[in-house]
Every structure is written in C-alpha cells, then in structure tokens.
Design a protein around this nucleic acid. Structure first.
Lengths: 160, 160
DNA sequence: TGAATTTGCTTTGACTGTTGAAGTTTTGTC
DNA sequence: GACAAAACTTCAACAGTCAAAGCAAATTCA
C-alpha cells in the first residue's frame, strides 16, 4: 500500500473516531453533541448571548434558539433578559448544566493528552509539527481553533 | 502556548475542515454528504444491496432505505430486484448518478494528495508515521478505514 | 423628536438524517 | 409444510438545520 493511501486512511481514522465520540457523549451525558457544545460555550464565559453561540458554532440563530430551548426544557440552562440591552438575552447554566459538563470530561481529548504526555520531548515536537502541517495542507482558508476536541467550534483567527 | 494546546488545535482544524467540506459537497453536487457516500459506495462495486450500504456506513437499514429513496427520487440511482435472491434489491447508478460523482472530484482529498506528493520522500514517511500514531492515540478500538476522506465510512478490519 | 434602519431573538414551516419497532416477502432448514 | 432467518420497507418519532417572516428594542439621522 502506498503512502498516500496510508496517510488518507490514518486521517480517516482520526476523523471517524471523533464522529463516533459524539455517540459516547450522548451516552455519558444524555445530551447531544450539539447541545453539549452549547453548554461548553456558555460555561467558558459564564453567560452568553444567542448571537455569540451562533457565531461560535457557525450556525443560524434559529438553530441556536432551538438548541437552547432544549437545554432550558431539560433544566440545564436558563434565559435571562439583559438589563443593559433589552433586546439581548443572557443564557446561563443551571447547576444541573454545570454538572453535566463536569460529568463528561471529554474522554477523547483526555485519551490523547494522556498518551501525548507519555511521549519523549522530541517526539512531541515532531508530532505537533506534523499535525500542523497536515492542518495547513487541508485548509483552504485561514482558520484558528480552540484547543477543545470534537465540539465543532471554531473561532476566527485572532479571537481570544 | 504549550504543545498540548498546539496539537489539539491542529487536530481540531483538521476535523473542522472535513466538516465544512460537507457543505462544499452539497454546493458542488446538489447532494448531501450522506447521499454522496451512498453514491460512492454503489460506484465502487457497480451495484450493491441495501444491507451492504448499511454495514459500510454503519447506519440502520431504515436509514439506507430513506437515503436511497432520495437518490431514486432525484434520478441518481435505481432499484432492481435481484433474480437470484428475490428478497434482495440491487441498487445501481444512473448516468446522472455517475456524473454527479465525476463532477465532484473530492477536492479535500485532492488538495491533500497534491501537497503530499510535493513533499520530500523522508517528509512523507515521517508524516505517515505521525498520522498513524495520532490515529492510534485516539482509537479506543481497532478500526480500519478506506482511503477516502470525509465520507464517514469505515470497514471492519480485514474486510476487502 | 420622530421616522427609518439595524440588531437580537423567536416562530414557523420544511427538509435531512437517524433510529427502533413492526410488517412483508423470500429463503432455507428440519 | 411449518418455522425461523434474512432483506427490505413502512411508520412514528426525534435532532439538527435553514430561510423567511415577525417582533421588540436600540440607534441613527434628518
């Protein structure tokens, strides 16, 4: 088998693993991956507007409304009218929402980090260089991602 | 920024790129990624049963029925009763279906392959080794993938 | 100040993907 | 020939997603 095939297969395995991980999350937390992402985004900032979520997830506002609806229905999040700008609605976590996050410590990412830490210094350096190279090879545009795996989120380059 | 963050970010970029690529496919071919996968699977063998598709995509038979329904509705595929085993139904491509595949030459994969080919021999070897390592680091189980990017398909190790 | 525009969100209607359960038709086996 | 298994389809139910339309608050500007 040639190297091109090998590399594509490896890449495919990486992608597939993260897809399957979505099902793990659902199992472990009772919340779908998309909803989980929303919980993560809220938790990063304490509270957040629908607009922010929509931009971070690169999804329409209507979609965010429906995702938040479900989180509210399940008692994981709350809506609160902003007092400064009354068009805005702050979305925040309930205790149950926070607990959901705590109970689901991103096993895929941890799996990776654990093994990464066990590597030699030079191996780590090489791995990072190669991963970055692959990312660049695939990228059409200039994107920048947060260091959180399998959340589907991405931020414009330069954002915090 | 430490190496763990760098590596997770690079991984995230890789995954995200393939997600966004799904939208490209839709744009370029007018067919959704899931339907496109079905077309690819049919085309690999000429014709195929629903069961095969279901296994290759790791999806229920009901799902396959509905995906194939849409392809048939849009004139991209045909159903044909098998004459050997009349429980089976062969699914095959129409000319339009074949054309759809031709018109969408998997730009993500090509993008990668083009850049890969331009690399030095030793660089290629190193890249493959590192990708395989990462795949292994993420894998919980023993999986095997076909060398086709962004199709969500996977075969049990050892299959064809 | 007051009308027009913009911004933030929700509602509605529609469609895809997905599953699980139940049903149909064919095969295969004892 | 009866019974079980296999290959599909149908159905009901969700989740995610979008686009378009609507509403309310804030901002702009004449």
């Amino acid at each position: 088998m040639d190297r091109i095939d090998s590399s594509l297969i490896a890449l495919r395995r990486i992608i597939r693993t993260t897809e399957l991980f979505g099902r793990e999350i659902r199992q472990a937390t009772g919340v779908t991956p998309a909803q989980f992402r929303v919980l993560q985004i809220i938790s990063e900032s304490g509270f957040v507007t629908a607009k922010t979520i929509s931009m971070r997830m690169q999804v329409s506002q209507g979609t965010v409304t429906s995702l938040v609806d479900k989180l509210v229905r399940d008692g994981l999040a709350l809506r609160q009218k902003s007092s400064e700008d009354r068009r805005q609605i702050h979305i925040l976590l309930t205790d149950a929402g926070r607990e959901t996050l705590v109970d689901a410590p991103d096993p895929l990412q941890q799996r990776f980090v654990r093994k990464f830490r066990a590597m030699e210094d030079w191996e780590q350096a090489m791995l990072v260089a190669n991963l970055e190279r692959v990312a660049t090879m695939l990228d059409a545009e200039d994107l920048d991602a947060s260091p959180v795996l399998a959340t589907g989120e991405i931020r414009p380059a330069g954002t915090q």
